[in-house]
Structure formats: C-alpha cells, structure tokens
C-alpha cells in the first residue's frame, strides 16, 4: 500500500558529514518522523534523532525539512512535493552532535539568565486572584513548547554566531514579555525592570521584526506582534518619555 520515496538525511558529527540517500516506504497519513523511524528500524539503526510525544506537544523533533525549520512529527508527507527527494537536516544554528541531533545548550543557558517569576509579597497560596482577560496575554506565550525553531531561524544568531553572547533570541525575549505581562509578577516591587533587562541584557534591540520566528512557530504564537513589538514600544516609552527622564535625572 505504501509508495517509495527518496530521502536525503544528513549524517555526520562534529567532524563533518553529508547527505545520505535512502529509499523508504511511505504510507497514507504518515509524517516525516514516521519515515525516519522506519529508516532506523530497517536501514540505519544508529541514526540519531530526538523525539518524544509525536503529537506536536513536546518540541523535541525539530529539524530542517527541505530547508524549512519544522517539527518532524507534524510534517505530513502528503504536503511535501512528491516529485522531489525529501531532505532532512539538523537545525543549522546549533552545533551538530550527531546526525539530526544538535547541541541546544545555548537555550538552557539563556533560560537561566531570565529572572524568574517573583511572587507577590503578602499574597498567600490560594489567594491569587486574576481575571481571565489578564492572564490570556501571558498564556499565549506559555503555549511555547520550546522546540527552538524560532531560535534556529532568527537571523540575528543564525548568521552571526558572535551575537549569541548578547542576544537571547525570540523564545527568551518572549519569556520576559510573558513575565512582564503576568498580572501578579512583583518584579517592580523587587526593583527589577524586566523591560530594561530585555533591552540591556537580552538584546531586544537586535530584533528588527522580520517575523521569521512567528512564521516557523508550530504553536502559531504571534511572537513578534504580541511579545516583541509591545516590549520594544514600552522600552521606547521609558527611554524617551520626558517625564521619566526628568524623574530619573532627579533620582540619579
């Protein structure tokens, strides 16, 4: 019942590698990850690939399919051009470990540099009250499955490795926006200015809103429009608001 398709899968490690051709059986309804699993079971038992849920919920099986950053488990074979071979390559922005597995440590390091949620003082567990409309903005960003496709596609780091030190990427700028919009986050009271930290420590200014991150997001989160642009606007408000500047001068 299946038909044969040509696959070109990148195989290699830190020392280099190349595309390897495979002919694989493809059945109705299958996704790219199904075929990769079939290759593992029949032709390449040591083909390295990350995956977990196989339902677009965990964000483990990110790769570049025909050059586009995608989740392998959510890419139906039927949506790929039938006459061409299917190329599967590892995320380009991160260093390869082996085959389709890359070193994503950069993301975990940046995650750790975003100051955590600060619980409001004096509000006991069980006494948190928030309105649905107020939590919804942050909830959109909490849909993030950390597939790091946005990080991979963002040209600020994709093409300029040197920016990695000063730029945390869309995922973690969005995390800052999420905390900044959290109705009960007490950063202000703790003297932490999340917007300023986004600008000064996490490189918000590098982002020139090309929306590449939004385009590849498998959760369809409007990263640029709903997280990054509003945060940029508010950073601008702070910087250029004459009242605030006056206030700052007085305090300083």
């Amino acid at each position: 019942m299946g038909n044969q398709r040509r696959f070109q899968v990148w195989r290699g490690d830190t020392h280099g590698g190349n595309l390897v051709d495979f002919d694989a059986e493809v059945n109705e309804g299958e996704v790219v990850l199904d075929v990769i699993h079939r290759l593992q079971a029949t032709k390449a038992p040591d083909l390295a690939v990350r995956w977990n849920c196989k339902a677009g919920k965990c964000g483990s099986c990110s790769a570049e399919i025909n050059g586009r950053p995608r989740l392998m488990c959510m890419t139906r074979m039927s949506m790929l051009p039938p006459q061409l071979p299917v190329t599967v390559t590892p995320l380009r922005t991160f260093p390869v470990i082996r085959d389709l597995v890359t070193d994503v440590a950069y993301n975990y390091q940046k995650a750790r540099e975003v100051r955590s949620f600060m619980p409001p003082k004096g509000v006991q567990p069980g006494e948190y009250r928030m309105q649905q409309v107020d939590v919804e903005r942050s909830q959109e960003f909490r849909k993030c499955i950390e597939c790091f496709l946005c990080q991979n596609t963002c040209h600020v780091i994709r093409d300029h490795e040197e920016n990695e030190t000063n730029f945390s990427g869309p995922r973690f700028l969005m995390r800052i926006a999420e905390l900044d919009m959290h109705p009960l986050d007490a950063a202000d009271e703790e003297g932490v200015d999340r917007k300023r930290s986004a600008q000064d420590e996490h490189g918000l200014g590098f982002c020139n809103i090309t929306k590449c991150c939004t385009e590849v997001c498998p959760e369809h989160i409007k990263i640029t429009d709903n997280a990054l642009i509003p945060m940029k606007e508010r950073v601008a408000d702070i910087r250029f608001d004459p009242l605030i500047r006056l206030f700052r001068r007085k305090r300083g």
Partner: peptide, 11 residues
Amino acid sequence: ELETYGALFDR
C-alpha cells in the same frame, strides 16, 4: 503552590 511558582491557570 504552583501559582507561587508562576503558573497561569484558566480563571
């Protein structure tokens, strides 16, 4: 307790 860690449940 999860809310004190930052969780945002539906309301």
